[in-house]
Amino acid sequence: MVSNFQYPITFLPCKNLEENRHFYETILKLPVALEQGPCILYKIGTENHFSYWGFCSHYDEYIQNQKKVCLTLVVENIKEVDDWHTELIKKGVKCIKEPAHTPQFKLYNGFYEDPMEYTIEIQAFYEDGKPKGV
């Protein structure tokens, strides 16, 4: 069978949808793609490269230990990583690791924590480190 997957959705448990909504809509400025009562889906990316993150208030019984999850947002360049760092710090977002070069993976990145303690990574690939097709 050929994999004809159209797009990925990553679902994560969320204790407080309104607190999460503020973080993802106001601070990260992600658009809501779908609201389903106890779940909110956000669209990430552009028309050719996109996916969804879904936060659900009823998933705690199924999924635990959010410290093992890293949600990565890829930006165009190093300046954007630094700009996001400044913006997130200004808005009181906890920084786990200041932006820095990671030559092993050919990227520049910083790590933050959302209200549910998920790790948020903002990164830019070096030109020679981008995934194929990007």
Rank of each mutant, 00 (worst) to 15 (best):
V74N: 07
N48R: 08
G45L: 00
C39E: 07
P8N: 14
M1R: 14
D83C: 12
T86F: 12
F111R: 10
T26C: 13
E25N: 11
V134K: 10
F23V: 10
K132Q: 02
K15D: 15
L28N: 04
D128R: 00
I122P: 01
F105R: 05
A100Q: 09
L34N: 08
Q123P: 07
K106N: 03
A100L: 03
N20E: 04
G129C: 02
N48Q: 08
I44K: 01
S57M: 09
F105C: 06
K97W: 08
Y42G: 01
D114S: 03
D114C: 01
Y7H: 13
V75R: 02
F55M: 14
D114W: 04
D60K: 15
I9W: 03
P31A: 00
I44F: 02
I122F: 03
I63R: 09
I40Q: 07
F5D: 15
Y59S: 15
Y118G: 07
N4D: 11
G110N: 02
W53N: 01
E61Y: 10
Q6I: 07
K79R: 14
P131S: 02
N48D: 14
Y24K: 06
E87C: 14
P8Q: 12
V93Q: 09
P31V: 00
C70H: 07
K132I: 01
F5W: 09
Y24L: 05
E98N: 10
D60G: 13
C39M: 06
Q123A: 06
I40V: 12
L30N: 01
V75D: 03
K91F: 14
G45R: 00
K15V: 15
L17T: 06
K132N: 02
G45S: 00
T46V: 00
D82W: 07
P99A: 02
E18R: 08
H101E: 11
M1V: 10
Q104M: 08
Y24R: 05
V74W: 08
M1W: 11
K43S: 01
E127F: 03
Y59C: 13
E80G: 05
D82H: 06
D83T: 14
C56D: 11
K15Q: 12
C95D: 03
I89G: 14
E25I: 13
G133H: 02
E19H: 10
V2I: 13
F125I: 01
Q104S: 05
E18N: 12
E98V: 14
